[in-house]
Write a protein that binds this DNA or RNA. Structure first.
Lengths: 237, 237
DNA sequence: GCGCTTTCTTGATCTGAATCAAGTCATCTG
DNA sequence: CAGATGACTTGATTCAGATCAAGAAAGCGC
């Protein structure tokens, strides 16, 4: 957990992000000069909900779980994969975090002071536009997640999740789950026990699971059951 | 459902909105000149999910239900009250609507062409900042809604909703529900039948309901059950 | 006023999903 | 290697909430 200024070798990864790709060099360097990079072991809590947002975070490698708690219960809200930012909204509005974050595995995370982000927002028109676009994107993702939760049963959510992963794996009929089942369960809003049963319940639709390896026999068959909808399942729109 | 350019008498209401209050007069007038105002009867569908977003909408009077459908099911996502905008994210990203909108009652709605909004965003630094701030706010609202859904039972959601309304009514111990119970049920993610039962289940905590009139006997008692949390229930943070 | 519709309530029943409890399996550790 | 640990599965049970069905109350048109 060593803390240091950001090495220049990390610049290109960040520069590639939609959020930073269009801005002026000068402003980009301003952000980078104020930034830190830290390496974290697995299961370290990076952020606690309710704390004030001092840094915009960027996952450079590994992965980060965003979760929330209330009254002794806990739920996964989403996962941040490289290379992407998280808690942008709190940074922008200088408001307390609504979610906690912890590393799922060994992870490398960049930290840009929130005040730098807000300052550069005022100075760089393109950066401002990128932030707006990113925020709108984030907003739309949550809306989709909410529709998914309110309109579908847990079995339907799993089926659509599998279709999404299948697509993301390059439209092959076999792929590996990207995380352990207990977290997948929480993401899908169900218990681990029920996820187990849900996988079995999808067998009649041609879904076979072995460990974390999934095989889909007949995509059309599964689609008939899952009824995927771009307004819920398509991450790009 | 007459369509006209916006009368100047509506300008002040809109100008007061956080989104428009800081921008330059000139830019504000540009937006207003391109805008329309329409009067709608109750239960008219203003927007259908999936359509492309040609206008930023502003409720001037009445109220608008934002809802979504999938596979024959339907759910209320939120309600837009005067004076506020809706579907800002779709407008900004020039993306299809994720939610449909219908008037709940006779309503007056202003329409600003999306391309004007995007153009002025580039021209007015203060407007850009206001949009970002508004979007971040919207994002955070949905996150809160999602935490509410995933972490609480329907009874807990109702209890916290009542506390929120009580606060909004000026901390008095009696107030009226702001909409009909079937919609409240949908907003809280439950059926009308269950909402009925939930009200009865809150009686031991001092909640009395008569029609749409609510009386809370002992606020502390209800709070002990509801365990309100600013990171879920406080609309301002 | 009277019918008509719609909302709301209440009870009975059903179901999806959580919980509880064991047991399996794989991995890690001394 | 034995024992511990943690992830996953499976079955039995419970529970929250949905659905179904019917009646009560309230609003509305004529």
């Amino acid at each position: 957990m060593v803390r240091l200024g950001m090495p220049e070798s990390d610049y290109p990864d960040i520069r590639e992000l939609h959020l930073f790709s269009e801005m002026a060099d000068e402003q980009f360097m301003t952000l980078m000069r104020g930034a830190y990079v830290q390496n974290f072991p697995p299961r370290i809590e990076l952020i606690t909900e309710g704390d004030s947002s001092d840094f915009l975070h960027i996952v450079l490698s590994g992965s980060v779980d965003l979760f929330s708690s209330w009254s002794g219960r806990e739920t996964s809200m989403s996962t941040a994969w490289p290379v992407s930012t998280f808690i942008l909204a709190a940074t922008i509005n200088d408001a307390p975090y609504l979610m906690s974050a912890r590393t799922l595995e060994k992870s490398r995370v960049a930290l840009i002071p929130s005040q730098d982000v807000r300052a550069v927002f005022g100075a760089d028109q393109r950066f401002a536009r990128a932030i707006v676009s990113e925020l709108a994107q984030c907003y739309r993702s949550v809306i989709k997640a909410q529709k998914n939760l309110k309109l579908r049963s847990s079995l339907e959510r799993l089926a659509n999740y599998l279709l999404q992963q299948q697509k993301q794996s390059g439209n092959v009929n076999e792929f590996d789950l990207r995380f352990e089942k207990r977290r997948l369960a929480s993401l899908l809003g169900m218990t681990p026990e029920n996820l187990s049963r849900a996988f079995k319940a999808l067998r009649p639709y041609g879904v076979a699971i072995d460990g974390n390896h999934v095989r889909i026999a007949d995509l059309e068959d599964l689609k008939r059951f899952a009824k995927p909808d771009p307004l819920i399942d398509d991450p790009s729109t």
